[in-house]
Every structure is written in C-alpha cells, then in structure tokens.
Simulated scan of single mutants.
Amino acid sequence: MCAHVVPCPDAAADDRVLAAPISRHPEQGWTLLCNGVLLFDDDGELLPDGQVVLTRRWQLATA
C-alpha cells in the first residue's frame, strides 16, 4: 500500500503506528495512516481487516 522510498511498517507489524499519516481529522479524533490503519486519538486502532486494537491504557485498566 505504501509507495514511500523507505516503506512504512505493514498494518500487521508491531510498529504499524509509525507509518506516515495521509489524512488527519483532529476534529473527529482520528488519523489514517498509509498502511490503512485508522489511529484514534485515544490510542485505539482499527486495522484494515476490521480488527480493533484497544489502547494500552484500557488493557492495563482491565488487567
């Protein structure tokens, strides 16, 4: 998906949030990354395959 000279991390990679932003909507609280990941201001993520990744804060609070 990424066409940068140095490719961005794949959506399945652990460092996927380091991909380049291609569309930012701070008024709505989300950013679309070039690997197809939707990154939310509350640190949640929505992967291109529809998988939801909860925030680390949420995971720690429920542990």
Rank of each mutant, 00 (worst) to 15 (best):
26 P>K: 14
25 H>G: 05
60 L>W: 10
38 L>N: 13
10 D>I: 04
32 L>G: 00
7 P>E: 14
19 A>I: 11
40 F>V: 05
37 V>P: 06
41 D>W: 02
45 E>S: 07
40 F>P: 00
56 R>I: 15
5 V>L: 14
18 L>Y: 10
53 V>P: 07
40 F>L: 11
23 S>E: 02
8 C>V: 05
24 R>S: 13
39 L>D: 12
27 E>D: 06
20 A>W: 09
8 C>L: 04
16 R>G: 04
12 A>S: 12
41 D>Q: 12
9 P>G: 06
8 C>G: 04
61 A>S: 15
51 Q>E: 04
22 I>Q: 11
52 V>Y: 08
34 C>N: 00
34 C>R: 02
24 R>A: 11
51 Q>H: 04
30 W>S: 06
16 R>W: 01
21 P>C: 07
40 F>M: 09
1 M>K: 08
4 H>Y: 15
27 E>C: 04
2 C>W: 09
39 L>F: 10
60 L>R: 13
5 V>Q: 11
20 A>D: 03
45 E>Q: 13
50 G>W: 03
58 W>V: 14
45 E>K: 04
31 T>F: 02
1 M>Y: 01
10 D>E: 15
59 Q>M: 13
30 W>V: 01
50 G>M: 04
3 A>T: 15
27 E>V: 05
23 S>W: 05
9 P>N: 02
22 I>K: 11
32 L>T: 00
54 L>H: 09
5 V>P: 01
19 A>E: 02
2 C>F: 14
35 N>G: 13
28 Q>W: 00
32 L>W: 01
9 P>E: 03
10 D>Y: 06
8 C>S: 08
49 D>A: 07
3 A>H: 11
49 D>H: 02
37 V>I: 10
8 C>E: 01
49 D>P: 01
23 S>I: 03
57 R>E: 15
51 Q>N: 09
4 H>W: 08
11 A>F: 02
48 P>S: 06
40 F>I: 07
26 P>H: 06
38 L>P: 06
54 L>P: 02
62 T>V: 14
6 V>P: 14
9 P>T: 09
42 D>W: 04
45 E>H: 01
47 L>Q: 05
45 E>M: 03
15 D>F: 02
53 V>Q: 12
36 G>K: 02
6 V>K: 14
44 G>R: 05
60 L>G: 14
33 L>V: 05
32 L>R: 04
50 G>R: 05
23 S>Q: 04
38 L>Y: 14
18 L>K: 07
4 H>L: 13
42 D>Y: 05
16 R>C: 12
10 D>S: 12
40 F>N: 08
1 M>D: 05
38 L>M: 09
51 Q>C: 06
9 P>F: 02
25 H>D: 12
14 D>T: 12
59 Q>T: 13
27 E>M: 05
48 P>T: 09
12 A>P: 00
6 V>Y: 08
36 G>M: 07
29 G>Y: 00
31 T>A: 05
49 D>S: 03
19 A>W: 03
12 A>H: 08
43 D>G: 12
35 N>V: 15
19 A>Y: 00
34 C>M: 11
19 A>L: 03
20 A>V: 04
19 A>D: 02
47 L>K: 07
5 V>T: 10
44 G>W: 11
48 P>M: 01
35 N>H: 05
39 L>C: 03
56 R>W: 11
9 P>A: 08
32 L>C: 02
41 D>S: 13
21 P>N: 06
51 Q>S: 10
32 L>Q: 02
12 A>R: 07
